[in-house]
Design a protein around this nucleic acid. Structure first.
Lengths: 389, 389
DNA sequence: GTGAAAGCGCTAACAA
DNA sequence: TTGTTAGCGCTTTCAC
């Protein structure tokens, strides 16, 4: 008893190389062939079943267990495979993912970095990612960073330290400071919805030009010519691109582009969502320029307009039409229901999941851009402009 | 050259025990003290910096590196700690989380199982969990199961195989089939919002009796006596509890409890959310029983009522008052804005995170129930009943 | 087709 | 205080 291991990591009694083989065999004593496990041992030993245990019960070498379980009958005789599976099942063996990850140098996990999981815009993306990766046997670490660069750096560190097989990045800025680091880490990355100014990893996005031009064309068809744009922040490509798409779409439609009709988010420090929408809408009104319609860079900005216009006695859609972007839950229930560009968030995530799997399998699509088409959902917040009546 | 290792796992040239010490020392040759790393070796060796590399550069044993990095000056001389940190920094060393997890038998990760991450009700819970766990240096695996028991079983398997340190379970049913398995796995579990009928793990929930009674009292104060309840499914404790809380609150308020005024979700197969609300509202109307107010088990059911009442020509709140549950985003923008019981979803997650950390530190709070208080948010969907005018 | 042995990168027990 | 050694559980190379 004096030599009994005190802890799990205490030295084994007789590890002399010459007896290594025999030492393995002693497992058999613990599991007499064909019999159930001896439960009398109440120590932790019972809790964890390892390949060695299965090997012992099946009367084979651990490496054979591994081969049988992983490659089936490919390099192991059918009979042994049978025995190994039986033993594995009897003992309730489950491979230790950590050990496999260490040995095989792939963790079967993927990290996802997003601005905020509690934002209804991003959550469906995560769900799409999750569904695709689950089917591929991989798990997803999620980290929200609120677009805070320090938190972002931390999250990246954590993910890389955990040896994720790939990183899904939905927080990139156009001028993203962590690009080099990610490249150095040599971990596959897929960007979601936000591109960096120079391409270095595959990007899965929504076709913003398509989305904005759908909105512009819709408004034009209703008779609008003076259309304003509440732009998102230009530091991220989605805001930047939509703004440029707005200008281009207006030009393509032959409509005048008045810079004073574009209110950028960047002139107001940090606020986001609804509050930002309020500020932008007030700014727009204060500019004393006429407009009959507003295209907002996202739904919450549009809702922010609802507030400000209401308190200013401006009716929607009678006086001003409003178009949102994303089609988040319940915007169809606002009064009036919001006309908006529906971006396929779930599909975005699913596609990103597919792409990261490809990247993991073989790094190849460095600058690939995958654009998903949005769709215009026409509801009650848009109508013909007043002057047309 | 003939003896050069072909792969990372090829045998090292001279691992003879007698020379083990010297073999370690040979690392020093690769990193002459005080000089930068020799980059001429373009093989993969450069990519991964290990404790051995740091040890070599610092001129100490790997275990000393480990001690210095993990325990600081506690068991290592200040001078060596300094040297180790310097070497570590110079090489850009980062501990391999997988290896640590295997060795230390804790992965610093936690699994979270929820019905659906894309549901705005659950997303904030995840965020709360995430924030607390990040601060504790842990990462979160997220899995959505859509309340599908098979998917649930899979997710549990995956989490356990990955050796998560704990599991946050937001999908439990009252009669949860995986309890035994989780107990056997001996992994800490914290239940979120949904209890099992017999307690076995700590539970963090919203005080449903409080929430529902706030609603009942509010309606009673407005003069309502005939109050209906659209109940969630009774298979999960939140639905079950809220229904019972409704009955009890009505009794406590001295109001009559008419069973025909309670429409259970369970009589309609699988639909959820808004569609379920539609069905329940129609069922309620078809029962031809008078009521002046409805308390819905969640906001989407309430929104489902809006539809049905509108098409039936019943005005809210003039003819019927409606109270929701949760206060999800934008319900304050419905017309009329929804009066609802605000459940602190983020705090729920944060508290669950705190609790799982405690559980991981020391399993002790087996049957503990932590109830967070909800708050009634009064808006436009409730008013005095018609007959009172 | 199977066994032997090594080792992924790390930390903990032990020895000095 | 530091070095030595072993081993977490697995897969893989090599030898037969």
């Amino acid at each position: 008893m004096g030599t009994a291991p005190r802890t799990k990591f205490a030295r084994r009694p007789a590890p002399h190389p010459l007896f290594a083989a025999r030492w393995r065999l002693c497992y058999r004593l613990r599991f007499p062939s064909g019999r159930a496990i001896d439960m009398s041992d109440t120590s932790k030993a019972r809790t964890t079943v390892t390949v060695a245990d299965v090997a012992a019960l099946a009367g084979v070498h651990p490496s054979t267990v591994s081969r049988a379980l992983n490659e089936g009958t490919q390099r192991v005789s059918a009979e042994l495979v049978e025995r190994v599976f039986a033993a594995s099942k009897e003992l309730g063996y489950r491979p230790n993912g950590i050990a496999r990850a260490l040995r095989m140098e792939r963790s079967l996990s993927v990290g996802m970095i997003i601005p905020d999981i509690s934002n209804p815009i991003y959550a469906p993306i995560v769900r799409g990612v999750e569904d695709v990766l689950r089917n591929a046997g991989r798990s997803v670490f999620v980290a929200s960073t609120d677009n805070d660069l320090a938190r972002e750096a931390d999250s990246l560190t954590v993910m890389l330290d955990r040896k994720v097989d790939g990183i899904l990045l939905a927080t990139a800025t156009r001028d993203y400071p962590h690009v080099e680091r990610l490249q150095r880490a040599n971990t596959p990355v897929v960007l979601i919805n936000r591109a960096t100014s120079t391409p270095w990893a595959p990007l899965v996005k929504v076709d913003d030009h398509k989305g904005v031009s759908l909105a512009v064309e819709h408004l034009q068809a209703l008779g609008h010519t003076q259309i304003a744009h509440l732009a998102g922040t230009a530091t991220v490509s989605s805001g930047y691109d939509r703004r440029h798409a707005f200008v281009r779409s207006m030009q393509e439609a032959g409509l005048p582009v008045d810079p004073t009709l574009i209110v950028s988010a960047d002139i107001f420090g940090s606020p986001v969502g609804l509050k930002l929408g309020n500020l932008q809408a007030r700014e727009l009104l204060s500019r004393c320029v006429t407009f009959t319609a507003v295209i907002a860079a996202n739904d919450l900005l549009a809702v922010g307009c609802y507030d400000v216009f209401a308190e200013a006695g401006i009716r929607v859609p009678e006086d001003v039409s409003i178009v949102g972007y994303h089609d988040m839950p319940l915007v169809n229930r606002l009064s009036p229901p919001l006309t908006t560009v529906r971006s396929p968030q779930y599909q975005l995530g699913a596609q990103a999941g597919t792409t990261i799997l490809q990247e993991i399998a073989s790094r190849s699509h460095e600058g690939t851009v995958l654009s998903l088409a949005p769709r215009l959902i026409v509801r009650g917040s848009t109508a013909a402009p007043r002057s047309e009546l």
